[in-house]
Design a protein around this nucleic acid. Structure first.
Lengths: 215, 215
DNA sequence: CAAAAACTTGACTGCTTGGTCAAATTCAAA
DNA sequence: TTTGAATTTGACCAAGCAGTCAAGTTTTTG
């Protein structure tokens, strides 16, 4: 559970440990997210963290332990806004808020999204159990919320699970495929209003669809 | 351009070459799509193709050459339905058709989608140029088509580029994240009607949105 | 059916990589 | 300030890797 650098003082980490572990996980996030688990090398992570490989392995016993730590940290943070969807809030407003936050996160921390995507694409060797238990439970819960909203007539009748997948897919696309987005849209992606423009477009489709409304 | 196994007869490939190259690219697609470029080993690809590594390298001069070949083949196939979107067709119907085909492809050949996703996530070292030239041109072209549809009042006013991204993101999600989808939906994903159910849900959202229509 | 060309492979090479070890160097508590 | 623990590192090792080579075997062709 804890790292191999565990010392006699009961679980508490020294100042240096705290600092270095933080430096390492940040560096590891960067490297793992672009190179994938297998593509990443401990040497590269160490270099990016500004220390020797040996020292890195003093804080985390193995490459896999670094990876597991980074994944854990990331997933918690990434899932928070989803957990925060309020069953008692206004449905449209809750979904609008969720999409906005996810888009903001994708723009600010694309590495986190990429790391997660990579893990899933490998077949989730590390997160498989998490997906089947905690994540499934959470999605089931939110699906029920969405269904109740539909029953109340506040939302059009849509399969809640596929709606969730659509929102995940779309929002994360801007992080995971940023290379492609940038290749197609060019420098526009770096202009200030870009994120708002994305949010506007995505919300417009998810909320209203593309079939014109005659109102 | 051609492989190192190029022989004196002008470019024509023998029966054995044809067979083996096909076997290899299929095996390579499987391995690259799950393990990524760096994670894949020539040995594994060869094993899956049922031949020695040395023999594989007789047909493709290097690991990268195999990869490039597989990527090329895949992208062409993958992009075809997008290119086929007909400016003179009925807008809603054209988009419905496109989404349906993409979903079907994702279900039938998730490896292709994963391979592509992996390449983009690595920063598209091999496809970067393709993205910025041919793909961009194609998307620009189709964006114009969509815009003309909007101007004609056949579609709600949406940014065409983001609409395209949304469709790509959503349809590919079922291939790239199949592990996650299956973890959450369980055995339902393997039941016969699943693909139609996905298509129905996705189309319903993209076409009509989730805001209820009072009609 | 013989010779050449095409095909196939095991053994090998040089390089990268995850991880170990022992020898420093720095830090913190008394 | 001393001393033991914590931290840091260079040298090293074994496994895994892409790619080479020479020596085969099979297929094609005249």
């Amino acid at each position: 559970m804890t790292s191999t650098s565990e010392k006699k003082n009961g679980g508490k980490l020294s100042r240096i440990q705290l600092e270095n572990r933080a430096t390492i996980t940040q560096a590891a996030l960067d490297v793992f997210s672009t190179d994938g688990y297998r593509g990443a090398t401990v040497d590269r992570i160490a270099e990016r963290a500004g220390m020797s490989k040996t020292n890195l392995l003093y804080y985390f016993g193995s490459k896999e332990e670094v990876y597991a730590t980074v994944i854990e940290q990331t997933v918690e943070e990434w899932l928070q806004p989803f957990a925060d969807i309020d069953p008692d809030g206004d449905p449209i407003e809750e979904i609008r808020k969720y999409i906005s936050i996810k888009l903001k996160m994708s723009a600010q921390k694309p590495e986190a999204s990429k790391l997660f995507a990579n893990e899933i694409q490998r077949g989730a060797p590390l997160m498989g159990k998490f997906l089947r238990t905690r994540l499934k439970a959470l999605v089931d819960e939110k699906a029920d919320v969405i269904r109740s909203w539909i029953d109340a007539g506040s939302l059009a009748p849509v399969d809640p699970y596929h709606l969730v997948f659509m929102i995940w897919a779309t929002t994360q696309h801007y992080a995971d495929f940023d290379t492609q987005v940038e290749a197609i849209l060019g420098s526009a992606v770096r202009k200030p209003g870009f994120q708002e423009q994305v949010g506007q477009a995505v919300l417009s489709v998810v909320l209203n669809g593309i079939r014109p409304r005659d109102e």
